[in-house]
Each structure stands twice: as structure tokens, then as C-alpha cells.
């Protein structure tokens, strides 16, 4: 684990509020993520952690507050938003690989259509990334022919192909069989070690201990606690976090 990096924040959320109808899912969220920092967001289901993650590339809109990425305010809609999203990698719980495209095409689509790279360049880079996440041999198959763990690693390669400034992971291992979880986590640990800025919503406490610079604990739409993993897991300050940890760790 590296020490917490310094410098001006890459992602900044200030006074962020969101409602789903009556439900106040994000309440006055203030959060800053530094360049190169790995932040793990944990909390009980319904605590707003996935919504928070999705708000950062505006897959969820927010009603109040401001989110900036690398100093730029998140635009509302249109081409500007698309341009900004290209710099923010996202990995979903359900992989969401493009079902009608091969693994290689999944990874090259963004670079060709958004970054305007040549097909040859995009494919060369895609094969490197697929090799790196260990699925190079599957390049010509379709997503449905791969296991969940393989699909999720392709999804990571697809996000990396855009050379993102920050990677968002929305419960990346929650839909996986137990024996496939570690192959995905290994890739993520490797990314963290290389200095990628990451925001990871997960229930994998092992990953948080191993790779995170900071753990953010959410409950009821609020950030309840934010601390380095060592402090958070050994001496959580809030009762809510103590209660949550006692439930998930004492098995």
C-alpha cells in the first residue's frame, strides 16, 4: 500500500444531493479524490454507494451540488458530457459487454469511434490490454461464450482502452462465482499498484485492506466515516460502522 497521494483533487463532489422521488439517496456528499488515490466505498445495500459511483459519470443525474473531474464541471447532456465520460472508465456489476460484438470489437469500439484512432492501432492496443488482463486468447469470441470472470476482465480492458483519468467500479465482483472473484480482484490490485485513480464500490474487504488508500463508509445516503483502511477496520469511530463491520467480518 502506498501512502496517500497529494495534489489537487482529480474528482471533487461538493454538496451533492439526489432524490429518487421521496427517497433522499444522496445527502450533502462532500468528497475529494486525489490523483492516484484508491478509494473504496462500502456500506449496507441502499446506502447510496452505487448511486454515488454512477453520479460521478452522470449515469445518474444529481439535483443539487457540483461534481468536477480534473477541474471541469460535469456537463448536463450532449457532446460535452460524452467527451468527459470518455475520460472516466466504468466497470459495472453486470459487465455490460456489447453482446453483438466480439471481445476485440468491445475493446476497440471506444478508441475508434470516440478517440478516432485507426482500426489497426486500436486493435494492437486492445490485444495488449486483453493479454494484460489474461483473456488475450478469447479476442475473437463473443461475450456470451466467456465466463463471468473473463467478461469482467474484458470490461476492465474496455475501460482502460480509453486511457481514463479515473476508473469507477460499481460492485465489480458481486455477480461473480466465488472462484472468479480473485481473478478480477488481482487485475484491480495490479491497476491500483500502477497508480490508477480508482473509486471502488465493493463488499470485498480484503481488497480494501490490500489496495485502498482510503475507505469511505456510507449509510442512509451520507458519508458516515472516511479513514485509511487500517484505522477504519481496527478502530472505526462511528457506531454504525462498528455495527456494520461486526456483521460482515465475524463469520
Amino acid at each position: 500500500m502506498t501512502s496517500r497521494p497529494n495534489g489537487e483533487p482529480l474528482v471533487r463532489l461538493s454538496g451533492v444531493n439526489k432524490w429518487f422521488g421521496e427517497l433522499h439517496v444522496l445527502q450533502d456528499i462532500d468528497l475529494e479524490i486525489a490523483r492516484g488515490e484508491v478509494v473504496v466505498v462500502i456500506g449496507p445495500s441502499g446506502s447510496g454507494k452505487s448511486t454515488l459511483c454512477r453520479a460521478i459519470n452522470r449515469l445518474e443525474s444529481i439535483e443539487k451540488g457540483e461534481i468536477t473531474i480534473d477541474g471541469e464541471r460535469l456537463p448536463d447532456e450532449g457532446k460535452e458530457l460524452a467527451r468527459l465520460r470518455a475520460d472516466v472508465g466504468m466497470v459495472f456489476q453486470s459487465f455490460n459487454l456489447f453482446a453483438h460484438k466480439t471481445i476485440l470489437e468491445n475493446v476497440t469500439l471506444g478508441p475508434i469511434k470516440v478517440r478516432k484512432r485507426s482500426k489497426a492501432d486500436a486493435e494492437k492496443r486492445a490485444r495488449e490490454l486483453l493479454d494484460r488482463v489474461g483473456v488475450g486468447a478469447q479476442a475473437d469470441k463473443y461475450p456470451a461464450q466467456l465466463s463471468g470472470g473473463q467478461q469482467q476482465r474484458v470490461a476492465i480492458a474496455r475501460a482502460l482502452a480509453m486511457d481514463p483519468k479515473v476508473m469507477l467500479f460499481d460492485e465489480p465482483t458481486s455477480a461473480l462465482d466465488p472462484e472468479m472473484i480473485s481473478e478480477v480482484l488481482d487485475v484491480m490490485v495490479g491497476l491500483a499498484a500502477e497508480g490508477m485513480t480508482m473509486i471502488v464500490v465493493t463488499h470485498e474487504m480484503g481488497f480494501a485492506r490490500k489496495a485502498a488508500n482510503r475507505v469511505v463508509f456510507m449509510d442512509g445516503g451520507r458519508v458516515v466515516e472516511s479513514a485509511d483502511p487500517e484505522t477504519f477496520f481496527s478502530t472505526p469511530s462511528s457506531d454504525r460502522a462498528k455495527d456494520f463491520l461486526s456483521k460482515i467480518l465475524n463469520h
Partner: peptide
């Protein structure tokens, strides 16, 4: 599935793309 559209928006494709 909505995930397909979300994934394509997440890599920076515009609505039309």
C-alpha cells in the same frame, strides 16, 4: 437491456453513436 446503453455512454459514445 439498459446496461448496454449505459456501457456505451460510459465509454464516451454520444446518444446517436
Amino acid at each position: 437491456s439498459t446496461g448496454q446503453a449505459e456501457a456505451s455512454r460510459a465509454i464516451g459514445l454520444t446518444f446517436g453513436q
